[in-house]
Amino acid sequence: MTSPTDNAPHAPRRAATPGRSVIFRILRADGPGGAQRWEEFKVPIPAGANVISCLQWIAANPVTTSGQRTTPVAWDSGCLEEVCGACTMVINGKVRQSCSCLIDEYAPGEGDVITLEPMSKFPVVRDLWVDRSRMFHTLQRIKAWVPIDGTYDLGPGPAERPADQETRYVLSTCMTCGCCLEACPQYKLERDPENFDTAFVGAAALSQARLFNAHKTGRDLKPDRLEALMGPGGVNDCGNAQNCVQVCPKHIPLTESIAAIGRAVTIHAFARFFRG
């Protein structure tokens, strides 16, 4: 039922032309809700270039292909090694991190075009920079933490079987980048924070709920999490398109998490019905 994921390491690629220039078509906006426009930049490509290095070049040389001076393109970035999640954007129509997007793979020939767009499921701050605060808000909504007794030394945590640790570790590598949400047909742009508590939480948060439900102490908040996920915007809003697992850069088994939460709320609902 599954096709090879989109984020698998790339097969040997077409040889890239050294010393070439590549056209960047960038969807820009000066501010939230502002009109978007396309601008094109011709960028010389050194060896090992990625989208970030090209955006850095544009920042230092903000001139469009038509020779017009413009402002540097705004974008979000951090670690540049695909572990912080900041530099997520839509490249050639698909969401991914821009730091790991190698120009040699995407535009091996002279004059090849790469399009950059901001993620469409989050309000644009400026240009390619979007506001993903809803994702962090959602982590509050599902109480994504272990309710410890405080930061003083109170002895070790619970022992854990290696298999359980491996399950949790993978889930815990989620960097809140938003790829799964951008590709999700059920996740929609929501500008109003008032609606954050009832809009769809998306795959990332469902997977985090599973992560904390799997921890011996984190389990204490499981009923709260499940109640939150039974309501509007919870797990039932998933449409099972399963794009999330295809685009997750960390190969997190998001669809398994969704099913696991589905099972948990089913059991929880029956238990609540009969137990009161």
Binding site: W145, V146, I148, D153, L154, G157, T217, G218
Partner: peptide
């Protein structure tokens, strides 16, 4: 120990 209790895998 503290980190362990916080749930670090």
């Amino acid at each position: 120990d503290l980190l362990d209790r916080m749930g670090v895998p």
